[in-house]
Write a protein that binds this DNA or RNA. Structure first.
Lengths: 148, 148
DNA sequence: CTCGGTGCAAATAATTTGCACAGTT
DNA sequence: AACTGTGCAAATTATTTGCACCGAG
C-alpha cells in the first residue's frame, strides 16, 4: 500500500473529497526527487488533465500544506513545495542545486552555538547547498540561494 | 565622515548620479536596525518625499543590491533588505523576530558537518530566529519562518 | 441528493517597463 | 548641453476569490 492511499484516507476522514486530481498530485510529490514550484505541479498535472486550471493547483497545494503532506520553502526565485519529511527526529538538509534532491543532516548546530544572554531562541535554519553525487558532474540548470 | 558619503562616492565613480533620494535611502538603511520591505522603504521615504513613487524605490533597491550596499533575503512573507554586513569574516546570523535586528554568530557549523562522499558543497545557510534582549519581553508583531 | 471541488474570469498584490520630463554633472 | 533619475501609467507575474456547474459520497 502506498502512502498516497493513507493520505487520501486522512482527507476522507476530514470530510474532504477524494478526487483523481488530488490523488495524482500526491503521487506526483511522492515520485518527485526535489522541490516543485506551483508551475511545475501545474505542468506535470496538465499532462494528465488537459483542462486543469492553475487555481486548482494552488488550492490543492494549500490543502496539502494545511494537512502537512507537503512543506513550503521560500527560495530566491519563489516558493517551492516538497513532500514533508518523514523523519520524526529534528534534522537539517543538504539540497542539490541541480535536481533539488534533499539529504538529511543529523547534526544540529544549535548545541554548539553560543547564544548571547538576552536572546531567546525560537527556531533555526541550517541548510547546505551544493551538487549531489549524480549532479556533481553536469550542473545544468542551477538554482540560486545566497550564502550567509 | 559617514559611510553614506563613501557609498555615494562609489556611485559617482560608476557614472551614476547622486540624488537626494538615493542619499536618503542609504541613510535609511544605515539607521535601520533590522530588515526593511520595499513597502517599509517606500513609506519611510515618502515622509521626506511626498511625491515619491514605488518604482523609484524598486529601482534604487535593485541598484543598491547590485552595488552590494544592501542584501536581499527571502522571508516567508516576502523579500526584505538590510545593509550588507560589514564583517569581512564568514559568519551567520541571529535574527530577532520582532525588531529583526541581527546579531552575528561567529561559529560556522560546516566544519562540524559530515558531508556524504559525492556531495559537492557550494554554499550554506545557518540562521537562528528568536527574540533579542529588548524584544524578549514584549513580542508584538512577530514574523514567521519555518524551522527545518 | 448534498456539499465539496473545479474551471473560468475577474480581483489583488508585487514587481517591471516605456516614456516624457526633471535633475545632476 | 548630455545623459541619468524620476513619476506616471500600463504591463507582467504570482496568487486569490466569486460564481455556476460537475462530481464524490
Amino acid at each position: 500500500m502506498g502512502t498516497t492511499d493513507e493520505i487520501m484516507q486522512r482527507m476522507s476522514r476530514k470530510g474532504l473529497r477524494i478526487t483523481e486530481q488530488r490523488k495524482t498530485m500526491v503521487k506526483l510529490f511522492e515520485s518527485a526527487t526535489g522541490y516543485l514550484t506551483p508551475k511545475d505541479v501545474y505542468e506535470h498535472m496538465q499532462q494528465v488533465y488537459p483542462g486543469l486550471s492553475f487555481d486548482t493547483v494552488y488550492r490543492n497545494l494549500r490543502l496539502l500544506l494545511d494537512m502537512d503532506v507537503v512543506e513550503q520553502i521560500m527560495f530566491e526565485d519563489g516558493v517551492k513545495f516538497k513532500l514533508s519529511c518523514e523523519e520524526e527526529h529534528h534534522h537539517h538538509h543538504m539540497i542539490c542545486l541541480n535536481c533539488e534532491k534533499t539529504l538529511p543532516i543529523r547534526f544540529c548546530p544549535m548545541s554548539e552555538t553560543d547564544v548571547p544572554g538576552g536572546f531567546r531562541v525560537v527556531k533555526h535554519k541550517f541548510e547546505v547547498f551544493g551538487y549531489c553525487e549524480n549532479c556533481a558532474a553536469a550542473p545544468a540548470a542551477s538554482a540560486s540561494e545566497s550564502d550567509s
